[in-house]
């Protein structure tokens, strides 16, 4: 058992957590009777996916993906940044100088920013979904006077019988 945890769980800890969170969210979506609790489940479900994406970009021993313009290597280009022509000239000169290693920082030392950037958009989408859903929930409460799903369904049934 401990061997299983060491080989399968520990290296992929984030991914296990994301699956667990997702299942919690899904369970709330399906099993909860209160509409707001359903929305909480929906939010957990979306957050689990955000965790998954954020885990994709992480590397061991990596740092934030920001170009260091004040470091000794990049001093030239940072100065030339004010003038396009200068930058091109310096770029050409700098090319042979750095020919053996990467232009720019070493990708192994920085986290992959792309999944994180994607999640900014996904967070915005999640917030707006939650906003719309809460607004609809409010309308339901105004019309039915309750947020419990079974009571709402009873009212709908009763309304049909009256009709």
């Amino acid at each position: 058992m401990s061997e299983f945890i060491q080989t399968n769980v520990q290296p992929y800890f984030n991914f296990w957590i994301y699956v667990v969170l997702m299942m919690i969210g899904l369970w709330a979506l399906i099993a909860k009777n209160n509409l707001i609790k359903k929305l909480i489940g929906m939010s957990i479900f979306q957050t689990a996916i955000i965790l998954f994406y954020v885990s994709l970009g992480v590397k061991d021993g990596s740092t934030i993906p920001i170009l260091d313009h004040h470091g000794p290597e990049h001093h030239e280009t940072a100065d030339a940044g004010h003038d396009d022509v200068h930058e091109k000239e310096h770029g050409k000169k700098a090319e042979p100088h750095h020919a053996d290693d990467h232009v720019g920082p070493n990708p192994d030392t920085i986290a992959n920013p792309l999944p994180h950037v994607l999640m900014l958009t996904a967070i915005v989408v999640g917030v707006s979904t939650l906003g719309v859903a809460l607004a609809i929930g409010q309308m339901i409460f105004k019309e039915f006077g309750t947020l419990e799903e079974n009571e709402i369904l009873e009212q709908i049934k009763a309304g049909n019988v009256d009709d």
Binding site: M42, F45, Q46, T129, A133, I136, I140, I152
Partner: peptide, 20 residues
Amino acid sequence: NKRGTVAAFNYVIMGTVGAS
């Protein structure tokens, strides 16, 4: 329509799960 609101709520839940 009262039932439209409830239907929209169910649609939000299902649609969000689909998109996720």
